[in-house]
Amino acid sequence: MSAPGPAMPLAHLLTLDGVPRATLESLLDRAQSFAEGGDRRDCLAGTAVCTLFFEPSTRTRLSFQLAAQRLGADVLSFDASTSSTSKGETAIDTLHTIEAMGVRGFIVRHKLDGAVAELAARAGADTRVVNAGDGRSAHPTQGLLDMLTLRQAKGADFSRLKVLMVGDVKHSRVARSDLQALRALGVGELRVCGPSSLLPVDDGTLAGCRVLDDLDAALEGVDAVMMLRLQRERMDDGLVDSLDDYHRDYGLTAIRLRRAAPDAVVMHPGPINRGVEITDEVADGPQSLILRQVANGVAVRMAVLEALLG
């Protein structure tokens, strides 16, 4: 577990891997102030920000747009399906074209691992890039908003917590960012549960985790359950026998949830495959923080944009 160290300024936010605990906590503190109603509409006045999305998105795109607007930025929305990329323009040429219009901040989602880091490396010296999700690699602002949600529910001392992550870790950029953040913030115990076909092997993702394949056993006494979406668009056929079988073995039901601590909370990054990863009764129940995660996304993204561009 990482000990607190000095915060560091960010040129870009591409991953949470290696970001010091003090920097994470500083961003979370600032996000909490925004969540409580803080506003800085003068912060990015006159600054242009572009949501450069090469993959579909609802929560991330809209919350980044709202976050930028609440900081006073001029916001451009890029949709690859209606852009010159459909005519063969490269992502790097697209970035440079929009930079030439005076845009300083880019919020980028891409289907390929490492694509956002490559754009950041080719960007101008005054340009700031935020990774809004690339391939299976990273989704740092989702990791931050999940940490903010957990901290609001359980307090800032993560060393007391047992946290369980369930499902498709192998294909999930959210899982990687969440696990990196939880380790950096000193979580007491990390458990991971899922079928072996959906767990990464030998890439360091599960370092420090207790890995189980029995969900009932994994749930015993945990303080938080982080469910993951089956990333069917990123997986090969045959990794899951059937959705019914997956739900039987790894779906979170109200009965199963009773094995967790009485005040355990349930999280999910969305979109939810209801009746597969989680039942309606749990997703919409009193222990669910799913909509709070969505709300916190705006506050966290305000904190990130302020730190990079303010």
Rank of each mutant, 00 (worst) to 15 (best):
L228M: 10
V240A: 02
E99P: 06
L239G: 03
A207G: 13
V192N: 06
T15F: 02
D244Y: 03
V282L: 04
G208C: 05
F64E: 03
T97P: 04
V75D: 01
D113F: 08
L145Y: 08
V19G: 04
D249G: 04
V166I: 13
L239I: 09
A115Y: 06
S86P: 04
T127Y: 02
G72H: 08
G155T: 11
Q152I: 10
D157S: 06
I98A: 07
S83H: 05
G72V: 11
T141H: 07
G18T: 11
S84C: 09
A117V: 11
A123W: 00
P20I: 11
T15A: 11
G204E: 10
G18N: 08
G188W: 00
D223R: 01
S33K: 12
N273Y: 02
G275A: 01
L212C: 11
N296G: 09
L199P: 11
G310S: 08
G102T: 12
I272V: 15
A22S: 13
R256D: 05
E89T: 08
D146E: 14
L219A: 09
R21L: 11
G135Y: 05
L289C: 14
L215P: 02
V222S: 01
D178T: 13
A67K: 01
R210G: 07
D223W: 00
L112E: 15
E55L: 11
A120T: 10
E306P: 02
E233H: 12
C50K: 01
F106Q: 04
G251N: 04
M302S: 12
L24F: 13
D126P: 02
G221P: 08
G155E: 06
R292D: 15
L199I: 12
N273V: 05
L16T: 11
Q231W: 02
M1T: 12
R256Q: 05
A181R: 02
F78N: 09
R59C: 09
R70Q: 15
D17W: 09
R70K: 13
G208L: 09
M101I: 12
K87I: 13
R128S: 05
R122Y: 11
V265G: 01
R301P: 01
M226E: 06
G285F: 01
M302D: 05
R234T: 14
I98R: 03
R122I: 06
A175Q: 01
R128M: 06
V169G: 00
V130G: 00
V129Y: 00
G238A: 08
H247W: 07
L150K: 00
D74W: 06
R259H: 15
L289N: 03
Q32W: 11
C50R: 01
H12S: 05
M235H: 05
G310A: 05
